[in-house]
Design a protein around this nucleic acid. Structure first.
Length: 806
RNA sequence: GGACCCGUGGUCUAGUGGUUAUGACGCCACCUUCACACGGUGGAGACCGCCAGUUCGAAUCUGGCCGGGUCCACCA
């Protein structure tokens, strides 16, 4: 058997990856009628740059699980998609191509996006292949492709017909500088200095009170005035009218829980819209109509009176001056507070009311909690995040976005009567900017205004189970794919991707999209801090993989249990490399002695002990893997392989393998059988974690014996409970004890491990027959010339005793 | 402010009522080349964050405190 001296992982990884693709090792078989299906709702990574180490971390964890299931005999449905219909992609294209979506024709920008994505996608996906992800890459989708658009638009139409969708005016965030709608991810908090204006107002009772605000310019849009009913200063004024300065409008003073008597003056005015608190205040005070004084361009309109045409900053100066002139400005108090600004230009964001589409679901809170509890969460505590999110929901789901790139709404408005015209499902996907409705409106008009907005990216990515499985819509197996077996993902998007997927699935099908949920943690920097560009502590997996085998990166990732964040330390990869090499070397040794191997069985007691340990490990690992505890399984395999097998067993059998003349041919055959069985089993146990090295070793030797194309479709080792024989395990304890103390005795005297031992007396509780069955091996391994045994009485406190004379 | 997670040798980590408290890296000493020095053997190194409580017995359960982190909400 020619096995090269060292494992050349760089060439092996490329070669094996090609082999897997060519042989379709990870292919889902849609025509298989026998095997049970294990389906995975693979997270489609966002195409916004390169893969980062956190991806390698969490995708490895899910891949270990999936590989285990495949070996357990499941017909694995493991699709792969990319998420590229969202803002992140939009921004990436703008940066990459140095363009501005807002300054381009929508059609041209969308085309640019789609073309650019096509270019960069293969390289992006290559990173996932590189880490050994065993997805079936032929089951592929992107969240912007026609198939996904169709499903997303179909979902919109269906939920509209179910009465779950409505359109109404709602505040959105805009940047008055860039004159564009912005999303939460584009915002950042900045500590700013500001003036808290104390302004005097007159109550109808004749009393004067003072309220405090940082947004005095919104006075023309003031819709309410609140105090806290527990505040003795103002309690008696609730229900009374107050006259606002300058405009002389009157609003009613009400109680509101959010008003903190200790802040400012304890009296607050609410405007449409000063911020989130004003929006929330409005929802708590039904019947109050907003006064929309700002347009989407960030400028005040005619409702602002003399301040029309100004921005907030301009209006603020004017109003403060006017208030002072009117003698109602009590004081300007300098304060520092956190302000939300647009991260690109640093401008304070504004809230402007525009028509938006919503999915009505606030009425389903109790159901949502129920749906969440029906999922099997791993780890269990991640369910709290879901529950926490549901309990905190305050608004329906706003699914419209004022953007140019994404999945369009499949609808138009009749230019004459305003009727909503939905696209025909059979015509999907449609772009209302380009396409036209096929029929005239009920009112007879043939003039339509398209909906310009895009669907929220989550409205599409919450449909990944449907998007992936409906690729097999024409096959009978389609019905068996939903609900899917597993949703793997990281914990940061439980409240987005996971939650929204559950909601959509329930609204469409009245059932959950999957059975099990596994949540992985994050890769942190070596000091346990989150990686971020601004901290400059990002670890680039491409660089890592030039230096270390993918298996070692996976070995590291598989060492962290689900949900736990893990600091990335380069030394942990070194441990992986060592394990890869140890496997290589142990197999090299094994293959050398297995050249003439024929099927046999274990006749020697030491071999029977090793096999008992092996069965024990298989049993434990299988139980751990079934429970998605791959990290604990890994620990057990590691311990068995390195310590029990390499450090101890291999040292013991060398004598029998090298010296058949002395020990007999049968003793060698027994060792060969044990070696073959154990090595093959160890490779299979390690295969989900380290797919490359295990495959390489399988191809070199085992394939011709086992006849299966790849170790990754070999069946997971089974165990025989009868094999876990307590007598054999007790003998093993004696073996290990003797080896340890013989080695220690030599080490203490600074002697070589090959130094002879004159005499050794061992006492233990195993039967003398059993001891003599292991004594030849023990003598050879410890270089002991005379080995004697005394059986200890069953009641003896000591389990094993020894006396060693060097 | 709400919720959740975590605090174990220098570093990272396993362990969820009874273990001489796991392993890795690092450190010290020794051993060589017949699988592997990316190796082997042995060793030093932990009052298991702090304080109470439950228990015959607590790293492990309960309460409080301190420290770190994450998600959500953030004060006109």
């Amino acid at each position: 058997m020619e096995v090269s001296h060292v494992y050349d992982w760089k060439s092996a990884e490329v070669r094996l990856q090609e082999y897997w693709e060519k042989q379709k090792i990870y292919a889902f078989d849609p025509d298989d009628k026998k095997r049970e299906i294990y389906s995975v709702d693979t997270p489609p990574p966002t195409v916004s740059g390169k893969m980062h180490i956190g991806h390698a971390f969490s995708y490895t964890q899910q891949d270990v699980i999936v590989r285990y299931k495949r070996m357990k005999g499941f017909n694995v449905f493991y699709p792969f998609g990319t998420d590229d219909n969202g803002l992140a992609t939009n921004l990436m294209i703008e940066k990459l191509k140095n363009v501005k979506a807002s300054k381009m024709e929508r059609k041209a920008f969308v085309k640019l996006c789609i073309d650019t994505l096509k270019e960069i996608r293969p390289g992006f996906i290559g990173d996932w292949k590189r880490i050994g992800l065993s997805a079936d890459f032929s089951i592929f989708y992107t969240t912007i492709d026609e198939h996904s658009q169709k499903i997303s638009q179909e979902s919109f139409i269906e939920l509209y017909h179910k009465g779950r969708e409505y359109r109404k005016e709602a505040p959105i965030m805009i940047c008055p500088q860039c004159q564009t709608a912005i999303a939460q991810v584009e915002m950042e908090d900045v500590e700013k200095e500001s003036n808290l204006c104390h302004i005097k107002v007159k109550v109808e009772t004749g009393e004067e009170i003072v309220y405090a605000t940082t947004r005095p310019e919104l006075l023309p849009a003031c819709v309410g005035f609140s105090v806290n009913k527990s505040d003795p200063r103002y309690k008696h004024l609730i229900g009374k009218k107050v006259k606002l300065p300058l405009t002389n409008r009157e609003v009613v003073i009400s109680h509101d829980d959010s008003v903190d008597p200790a802040y400012g003056t304890g009296a607050v005015y609410f405007c449409t819209y000063g911020g989130v608190e004003c929006i929330e205040w409005l929802t708590r005070h039904p019947g109050v109509e907003p006064i929309n004084i700002m347009g989407i361009n960030g400028k005040y309109n005619e409702k602002a009176g003399k301040y029309a045409g100004m921005t907030s900053n301009e209006a603020r100066k004017e109003i403060v001056a006017d208030l002072e002139k009117a003698g109602v400005l009590v004081k300007l108090e300098k304060i520092k507070h956190a302000v939300n600004v647009h991260e690109r230009c640093g401008t304070d964001i504004e809230y402007v009311a525009t028509p938006q589409w919503f999915i009505r679901y606030l009425d389903l809170k109790d159901d949502m909690l129920e749906w969440g509890s029906e999922l099997n969460w791993h780890p269990e505590h991640m369910k709290n995040r879901y529950n926490n999110w549901v309990q905190g929901l305050k608004w329906d789901w706003c699914i419209s976005r004022q953007r140019v790139f994404g999945v369009p709404f499949p609808l138009w408005y009749c230019a004459k009567c305003g009727e909503i015209i939905l696209a025909d499902v059979k015509d999907l996907p449609v772009d209302p900017l380009v396409d036209k409705p096929k029929k005239a409106c009920k009112c007879g008009s043939k003039q339509f205004n398209p909906e310009h907005d895009m669907l929220d990216t989550w409205a599409t990515s919450s449909l990944t189970p449907q998007i992936a499985t409906s690729l097999f819509k024409d096959k009978p197996i389609y019905k068996k794919l939903l609900p899917m077996s597993l949703r793997p993902q990281a914990h940061d998007i439980i409240s987005f991707w996971l939650f929204n997927t559950v909601v959509k699935s329930q609204l469409h099908y009245d059932k959950n999209p999957w059975k099990d949920v596994v949540i992985s943690g994050w890769a942190l920097d070596p000091h346990g801090r989150k990686m971020s560009k601004s901290k400059g502590n990002i670890v680039d997996p491409q660089i890592v993989l030039q230096k270390y085998p993918a298996d070692s990166l996976r070995y590291w990732a598989a060492g962290s249990k689900l949900g736990d964040d893990m600091p990335y330390q380069e030394k942990d990869l070194v441990t992986g490399v060592k394990t890869v090499n140890k496997l290589w070397n142990a197999c090299k040794f094994g293959f050398m002695h297995l050249e003439d191997y024929k099927q046999g069985n274990a006749t020697e007691a030491v071999d029977q002990w090793l096999l008992a340990e092996l069965h024990k490990v298989v049993k434990e690992c299988s139980a751990f893997m079934d429970n998605y505890e791959y990290a604990r399984a890994k620990l057990e395999i590691d311990k068995f392989f390195w310590i029990t097998f390499c450090d101890n067993y291999l040292e013991i059998v060398k004598d029998r393998l090298y010296n058949p003349a002395k020990r007999g041919e049968e003793a060698r055959r027994s060792a060969q059988y044990t070696l073959y069985t154990t090595l093959f089993t160890v490779l299979k146990l390690f295969a989900p974690i380290m797919p490359y090295i295990t495959e390489e070793l399988y191809q070199i030797y085992f394939k011709k014996k086992e006849k299966t194309e790849s170790v990754h479709i070999c069946s997971w080792p089974s165990f025989d409970a009868d094999m876990i024989d307590t007598h054999k395990l007790a003998a093993g304890k004696v073996i290990l004890h003797v080896l340890e103390h013989a080695r220690r005795a030599k080490s203490e005297q600074s002697k070589s491990l090959k130094a002879p031992i004159k005499k050794m007396v061992v006492s233990a509780k195993i039967e003398p027959d059993l001891f003599s069955a292991i004594s030849e091996d023990l003598k050879a391994t410890t270089m002991c010339e005379e080995l004697l045994y005394k059986k200890l009485p069953p009641k003896s406190e000591a389990e094993i005793e020894h006396d060693i004379i060097l």
